[in-house]
Lab assay of single mutants.
Amino acid sequence: QIFVKTLTGKTITLEVEPSDTIENVKAKIQDKEGIPPDQQRLIFAGKQLEDGRTLSDYNIQKESTLHLVL
Rank of each mutant, 00 (worst) to 15 (best):
V4T: 01
L70H: 10
V69L: 13
P18R: 04
I35R: 02
P18M: 13
E17I: 09
Y58D: 02
H67Q: 10
G34L: 05
T6Y: 13
R53I: 06
Y58K: 01
G46H: 06
L42A: 00
P36G: 06
E33K: 05
T54M: 11
I12W: 05
D38I: 11
D20S: 07
L70S: 11
L68R: 00
A27G: 11
Q1K: 11
F44A: 03
K62N: 15
T65A: 04
Q30Y: 15
N59Q: 09
D31G: 09
T8W: 14
V4H: 01
F3R: 07
R53C: 12
E50Y: 06
I12E: 01
L70C: 14
R53M: 12
V4L: 05
L49S: 00
D31C: 14
E63M: 10
D51V: 06
I35H: 08
T65H: 15
N24F: 14
T13V: 14
R41G: 07
K32N: 05
K28M: 14
L49T: 03
H67T: 13
F44M: 05
K5G: 04
L42E: 00
K28E: 03
H67M: 11
T54P: 05
L49M: 06
S64W: 04
E50S: 07
Q40H: 04
T11I: 14
L68V: 05
F44W: 09
D20M: 10
E23M: 13
L49N: 00
K47W: 07
D31K: 12
A27F: 13
N24E: 12
E63Q: 10
I2Q: 01
V69R: 10
N24S: 14
E50K: 08
Q48P: 11
L68Q: 02
I60V: 08
L66D: 01
K10N: 09
D57F: 13
S56Q: 13
T11A: 05
R53E: 05
T13S: 10
N59A: 08
P36L: 06
I2M: 05
T21M: 08
T65P: 03
V4Y: 02
S56K: 13
K5F: 06
K26R: 05
A45P: 02
T6C: 14
D57Q: 06
T13D: 04
Y58H: 04
E33Q: 06
I2W: 02
G52F: 11
I35G: 02
Q61Y: 08
I22Q: 02
R41A: 08
Q48F: 14
D20Y: 07
Q48H: 10
D38T: 09
L42Y: 03
S19E: 12
A45W: 09
K47D: 08
D57R: 02
E33T: 14
Q40L: 06
E15D: 14
V16A: 07
E33R: 05
L14Q: 00
S64L: 04
T21S: 08
E63I: 03
Q48G: 06
P36W: 06
L70K: 07
Q61I: 12
L14D: 01
D38K: 12
Q30K: 11
P36D: 07
I43R: 06
L66I: 13
P37Q: 11
T8C: 15
Q1F: 15
I12L: 10
L55T: 03
T11C: 14
F3K: 06
P37M: 14
D31R: 13
V25M: 05
A27H: 12
G9Y: 03
K26I: 03
G46C: 10
T21G: 03
I35C: 06
T65S: 05
T13A: 10
D51R: 04
L49F: 02
K62W: 13
G34Y: 03
S64K: 04
V4I: 13
I29V: 05
E33G: 05
N24D: 13
K10M: 10
N24M: 15
K5Y: 06
I43H: 12
L55N: 00
A27S: 12
L70T: 12
V69F: 13
Q39C: 15
P37H: 11
I12R: 02
E15I: 13
P18E: 10
E23G: 13
L70F: 09
I29W: 00
L55Q: 00
N24W: 10
V16H: 05
S56Y: 10
Y58M: 04
V4P: 01
H67S: 07
Q1T: 15
E15L: 13
Q48V: 15
